[in-house]
Simulated scan of single mutants.
Amino acid sequence: MKIGPKVYYRKTTGEVIYITSQVESPWAVETTKEEDMNFYQQLKGYDPEQLDVLKLEFDKYTEDFRIAKSYWINPETKQIEFVYPPKDGDDPDPVPQKPLTDQVSELKTRQDSTEAAMLALMDVTTKS
């Protein structure tokens, strides 16, 4: 069984408190928020009402976590956002953004639909 990581964060600010490890094992078992808060030292002492958890798919955003400078959970959307190191010419004070993994996926989908539309248009114009 493959179990993805869980991101525990403050509901009000989106500050990430702890990320559990992902697990791949035939004996892996999903745990509840209450079980995690009793097990992980980093979560002990927090009021469960003040924390929320975002469950990620196995291997989801692995590359984003590796290259990001920081990350947080947007309290309004409850989605993870990353701050990536600035490249030459970029704003030296980058803002959080959707994971690059998701951005690439969206661009691929848009490219595929643009190509399909162009092929359909070419087909119509060559038949005229």
Rank of each mutant, 00 (worst) to 15 (best):
Q41W: 13
K78A: 10
G14F: 02
L51E: 01
G14T: 02
E34A: 13
Y61H: 02
K44F: 04
K87D: 14
L56I: 00
D52E: 10
Y40P: 11
M118D: 15
V104T: 08
E115H: 10
F39H: 14
D112S: 09
E63N: 09
T20L: 03
E63R: 10
D102Y: 01
D123S: 11
A116P: 07
E30C: 10
T101W: 05
P48T: 04
L121V: 10
L54E: 06
V29W: 04
Y61N: 08
V95G: 14
W27I: 14
N74L: 04
V83N: 00
K78V: 01
Y84F: 07
Y71S: 12
S113F: 13
V16H: 06
D52M: 10
D91W: 03
Q111G: 10
K6L: 07
D88K: 14
L121T: 11
K108W: 09
D112P: 08
L121F: 12
T101S: 13
D47C: 03
W27R: 12
G45W: 03
Y84E: 01
V95M: 15
L119S: 12
L107Y: 01
P75A: 06
K78H: 09
S105K: 15
A68Y: 01
F82N: 08
V29F: 05
K6I: 04
D93I: 05
S113C: 09
K98F: 08
Q50M: 15
K11L: 12
P26E: 06
E115Q: 13
F65I: 01
W72P: 14
D123G: 08
Q42C: 00
F39P: 11
T101M: 05
V29K: 12
